[in-house]
Design a protein around this nucleic acid. Structure first.
Length: 428
RNA sequence: GUGAGUAUAGCUCAACCGGUCAGAGCGCCAGGUUGUGGCCCUGGAGGUUGCGGGUUCGAGUCCCGCUACUCACCCCA
């Protein structure tokens, strides 16, 4: 006996009883992006490892321990994309989009890969919906990205969430703040957790969002970045808050919100939900004005966000959200006796050419089984073809909703069904 | 990478102190209707109780190891 293989840890199969939910989400989301004038963009599932190492930052957790990296047969180090922004920027620079389009607005729906220990809301292959606006340093674009992320969430009737907002400064002001913070943390070094002790010199900002109680106590009185933002960053942050206020978006300032990717500048935000487990961020994003140069390109500002589809799905399931229905055939053609098989096939293919969803018996079962199958599939009409009917040049058509049955001339079958189908379509 | 919990039919779960305890519901199949679904009734298929050891007269039940899953830490979407 051969061993039955199973899916890889941290991955999930999406069977038909789930896939219609994904389609529902994707459809609605695409519509929203259209409304905001974002066009879809697709990039390869893998990239040269160097792209992520340079873009995201060697020292980040993502790059240092979570990437699926392998060598292809030519000896090139490749990596399954752990996030999308670096890929989008790479493509933007490669195709010199900056010379063609002043503001490049794109969205994506794509799988991402990170080798972490799986848990609620954390998969090794997970899916993100996201958008990037590349080319404008203006705060109204930050606001648009935030509004867009919230629009998507609210479109699915998610109300229980918090938008957390922060500014992490830029290359001009962040180093100075880092130094101030480092000095402060050194004073309380002995009180910090082991993890945080290691971060003090390497990346003191990360101590700020530690969940460790000891760290929290120290961080409580730490100097805030707001007092150290340069003029440009402070102005940008004030403008953004002003716009959010003006368009009625509520946010919570969180000076301890730090993003795990090095490329973020100025705006950083996260949308969290108490309906998720300990992985409570449904979406996150921010501004990345340094990324382009990091990748060897010109200075090009950008903002973006990403939303975890599986995490949103967890919330929707919890809310008993209505995903609509699985698509079902309109007609089931049942037949009795193998000599009528071709006749049944003929009807089915004719209906299909008219784009009417239909199914027929493919397992040669009893009429009772065929009727049960038709019911299970939720069809509206069953066309029954048997010797009795054929003798009179007719077939029986049963309305599964009302239970009515009609004797229909063979030549009239297509007409009967198409007119009913049109009726059905017009009432919906 | 660290810690804790769980592992019984396709699915959700039951089986008191180890002793007819291998079961139920759902689903699937068939019959009740010699050619008609849903409801109802009856019956059937389907399990080497995750894998490997051990203790015992006897293990789904206790012990050890392995694996997987789940949750949490960590990190993030």
């Amino acid at each position: 006996m051969k061993k039955i293989l199973k899916n890889v840890r941290g991955t999930k199969d999406i069977l038909p009883d789930e896939s219609y939910k994904w389609q529902h989400i994707e459809q609605r989301v695409r519509k929203i992006f259209e409304v905001y004038n974002y066009k879809e963009m697709r990039t390869p599932i893998f990239e040269e490892t160097e792209l992520f190492a340079r873009g995201i930052g060697e020292l980040t957790d993502i790059v240092s321990k979570e990437m699926y990296t392998f060598f292809d047969k030519g000896g090139t180090s490749l990596t399954l994309k752990p996030e999308m922004t670096a890929s989008v920027m790479r493509a933007y620079l490669q195709h010199e989009v900056n010379k063609q389009i002043p503001l490049f607005k794109v969205y994506y729906i794509s799988p991402m890969f990170r080798q972490e220990r799986p848990q609620a809301g954390r998969l090794r292959q997970f899916h993100q919906i996201g958008a990037e606006a590349i080319g404008s340093p203006n705060s109204e674009v930050d606001a648009e990205i935030i509004a867009l992320a919230l629009h998507i969430i609210e479109n699915f009737d998610i109300k229980n969430y918090t938008l957390k907002l922060n500014s992490v400064g830029c290359q001009n002001c962040r180093p100075a703040y880092k130094e101030v913070l480092r000095e402060y943390l050194r004073k309380f070094y002995d009180l910090l957790s082991e993890d945080s002790k290691n971060r003090v010199e390497r990346n003191p900002l990360r101590v700020l969002d530690s969940k460790d109680e000891k760290d929290k106590a120290v961080v409580e009185n730490a100097p805030l970045i707001y007092e150290y933002l340069c003029g440009n960053c402070a102005e940008h942050f004030e403008e953004l808050k002003g716009i959010l206020d003006a368009i009625g978006i509520k946010y919570e300032l969180d000076p301890f919100l730090v993003r795990g990717l090095d490329y973020y500048t100025k705006t950083a935000f996260e949308i969290i939900s108490p309906d998720l487990g300990s992985q409570d961020a449904i979406a996150g994003g921010g501004r990345y004005d340094l990324l382009s140069k990091e990748l060897g390109g010109p200075e090009v500002p950008g903002v973006g966000f990403a939303l975890g589809i599986e995490r949103m799905m967890l919330i929707l399931e919890k809310n008993a959200y209505n995903f609509g229905e699985v698509s079902k055939p309109f007609v089931y053609v049942a037949y009795l006796g193998s000599n009528l098989r071709n006749f049944a096939l003929n009807i089915v293919f004719s209906l299909r050419k008219k784009m009417i969803p239909c199914e027929m018996e493919l397992l040669n079962r009893s009429l009772k089984s065929q009727m049960r199958e038709a019911d299970r599939q939720g069809v509206r009409f069953v066309v029954i073809i048997g010797e009795d009917e054929l003798r009179n040049n007719k077939c029986t058509i049963r309305d599964m909703k009302s239970g009515e049955q009609f004797g229909v001339e063979l030549s009239q079958i297509l007409e009967f069904i198409t007119s009913r189908y049109a009726q059905e379509a017009s009432t919906n």
